[in-house]
């Protein structure tokens, strides 16, 4: 089952050890360095991840502590505390809330995307490799769900079952799983005609082994690019839900929620809505630029 892994195309290489995966990651990074757009995206994403990890060290104040409300950026309150980005309607420091808000979005967006991928990959492998009834049933179910405009699905489901973390993640899995299934299924239909799949079948490998070890690793290229784009889109979705009042409950800082709460004060205090919008846009931009860079290098070889 050992194949020559130094395949330069980086396509037909079963992952057989962690060390190898690491080597490949280093190589991908070296390739990504050639794409300026991809590097810019990586920079933005890594920046926000670092901010989220080290939030307690960077944030000047407790994100839930109340100071003087409605301070504009750069103003100082009566006790001499400086607020670089001002304070919100109940006197919480904007900068600290933005920094801690990164945690929430960087936990939920990848969690939801990753779970949706698990579901989509399993469905796609079954539909594509098993074929027959599996394919018909799964594809039909997926088509029905995909015929809903996603936002309707979110609003109806979350409106009915309530906005909790689990419900939001479940709604995202339901809405994006079938789309991922379609992509995986298409890739599987292509890969299953290759000779190494026939070889594995002749060896008598189990379906599970073929799907997970032979097919899945070879489908990863397009899936990584798609995952990156989807991560950006899920981030937007989570932001939109919070903006519409269907997000996770306060008081923990949430970028979309901050815009929703401060909307009515935007006329006099635009900083309260502007900064969270800049934060979420820059993170999504990071994901999208990174996806573009990854696609560029995957097309090159």
């Amino acid at each position: 089952m050992k194949k020559n892994n130094e395949n330069l195309s980086g396509k037909i290489v079963p992952a057989s050890s962690v060390g190898l995966a690491f080597k490949r990651a280093v190589k991908s990074f070296a390739l990504l360095k050639e794409s300026r757009i991809g590097m810019a995206g990586l920079f933005l994403v890594v920046l926000w991840i670092l901010i989220a990890i080290f939030a307690p060290l960077i944030a000047p104040y407790d994100p839930l502590a109340n100071f003087q409300p409605f301070l504009k950026p750069g103003m100082v309150d009566s006790k001499g505390n400086l607020f670089l980005l001002g304070t919100d309607q109940i006197g919480r420091d904007m900068l600290s809330r933005l920094i801690f808000g990164a945690r929430r979005v960087l936990i939920f967006a990848p969690l939801a995307t990753f779970s949706a991928y698990l579901v989509g990959i399993v469905m796609g492998l079954l539909a594509g490799y098993r074929g027959g009834w599996w394919d018909i049933v799964l594809t039909r179910v997926g088509d029905v769900i995909l015929s809903f405009p996603p936002i309707v699905l979110y609003i109806v489901i979350i409106g009915v079952v309530g906005a909790t973390a689990i419900n939001i993640v479940a709604a995202i899995i339901l809405a994006s799983g079938p789309g991922i299934m379609r992509i995986v299924r298409g890739l599987v239909l292509d890969i299953r005609t290759r000779e190494y799949i026939a070889a594995a079948e002749t060896r008598g490998e189990s379906d599970l082994f073929i799907m997970l070890v032979e097919i899945l690793p070879n489908a990863r290229g397009p899936l990584i690019v798609d995952a990156c784009l989807r991560l950006g889109f899920v981030t937007i979705t989570i932001g939109i839900l919070a903006f519409l009042g269907l997000g996770l409950p306060p008081p923990e800082p949430d970028w979309g929620g901050m815009v929703n709460e401060a909307r009515v004060f935007a006329l006099a205090f635009p900083h309260m809505t502007l900064f969270p919008c800049i934060a979420i846009s820059s993170l999504v931009l990071g994901f999208n630029l990174l996806a573009d860079g990854l696609r560029e290098i995957s097309l090159r070889d």
Partner: peptide, 18 residues
């Protein structure tokens, strides 16, 4: 195109309003 699809609609609305 990448720039404009990266900014969620509520953020665009906020920027334009500002």
């Amino acid at each position: 195109c990448i720039l404009t699809v990266s900014v969620p609609e509520f953020a665009t609305a906020t920027f334009f309003s500002a």
